[in-house]
Design a protein around this nucleic acid. Sequence first.
RNA 1: GCGAUCGUAGCUCAGUUGGUUAGAGCGCCGGUUUGUGGUACCGGAGGUCGCGGGUUCGAACCCCGUCGAUCGCCCCA
Length: 420
Amino acid sequence: MSKTPQAIRGTQDIFGVDAEAFAFVVETFERVRRLYRFRRVEMPVFEKTEVFSRAIGETTDVVAKEMYSFEDRGGESLTLRPEFTAGIARAFLTNGWQQHAPLKLATHGPLFRYERPQKGRYRQFHQIDAEIIGAAEPQADVELLAMADQVIRELGIEGVTLHLNTLGDGDSREAWRAALVEHFRAVKDELSEDSQERLEKNPLRILDSKDPRDKRLVADAPKIDAYLSDDARAFFDAVTSGLDAAGVKWQRAESLVRGLDYYRHTAFEFIPDEGSEAAGKLGSQSTILGGGRYDGLMESLGGAPTPAVGWAAGIERLAMLVGEKDEGELQVAVVAEHSRVEKDASRLTSLLRSKMIVADMFVTGSPRKRYGRAVKANPMIIVSLDYRDDDLHQSWRIERPIESDELHEIMATFTLTGDT
RNA sequence: GCGAUCGUAGCUCAGUUGGUUAGAGCGCCGGUUUGUGGUACCGGAGGUCGCGGGUUCGAACCCCGUCGAUCGCCCCA
């Protein structure tokens, strides 16, 4: 026998109760997005590499090292999507979806990032995603966040809080950034080694460093609020008051930033509260939903300036928090205790299923052990079909009653034939 | 890219300071109790001990490498 190939590192085969939890997340998302009239969109799993490299920024590490890129037979560089937003932005431009603006879109599916797997982090993972494109007003942010909040509540997830920040408009953001660099440069020697590195490459990231040495210095770092333009401040005030009006709980997170430059104004993450059960289940990958406003993205793909805001959430991480979902109760187990009644068992099972009654049959393996297997499946009703002493026998045992007239009618009228 | 821990049957795991033919439970297959039933009993299949090399009279056990898993760091679209 030849050796069985192994699965690709960082991929998962999701099965049983885990797959049920996964499906529950997706079904809940689908239900909620309809409530908010987000329109369903199906996107390709791969795009020209350029779609992502231009959207995300050519020089960043994520583009350089963490994408699944390859050449197709025509020599074109393609990339398995590492996020939804860039592909959706490309579709918005190439399909003329401007005509539908403002456009509320929702999708879900697999994404690919070439990273080291760990808890809640895989190379092929799955997200739900919501975007509002072509809406510059803060009410769009509010609606998007209200939807996110409702998804999480409908999933029954507790102990998770919306952390909210503003990065201001382009000018605010640059002024703040310059002030941060100045502040940290003055105390460079006291920063962690990693943050000394960040100071050159991505100074905003120092703000959410886990190192205690950095945390102390972050505490008295300049705040974005001091650098906000009047417009940016008004925008953020409108978002927060809108959230209050919509009954969405939130907390200000002055250190919350985004890794990419195209973000403006609103930035947010839903994060488990410290010490909560949810935090324990997630390990160090703690953000379960994140997003923000990306008004600059369309231009980087060659389109007209188009305001947009969106979020995405990891299905696997959400599934870890929703608890066990069972695979659905077996209502009727049909047991053929003799080969003469196997066809009858099959006929009865089909009949039940055609009436939307959940049924399974037990007709394989040794006849004397079939009943035991049926019992183990924990059905509400066990129907035994048998042939002994030259006679056909039919009986049922009710473990837990089913309210169904159709079931009783089927059982009353079903007759064994013994045909083989 | 870096670090720590771990790889023994389909699954969960034992396996003594290195010492005969590597074990258990569950699951699977077969049989006994000729039974209205989840039990019990008997038997069976299934393992190159992740892979490769080394040390040794002798390695599941010690050493090196490699692959994989898990968790953390970096990064996080």
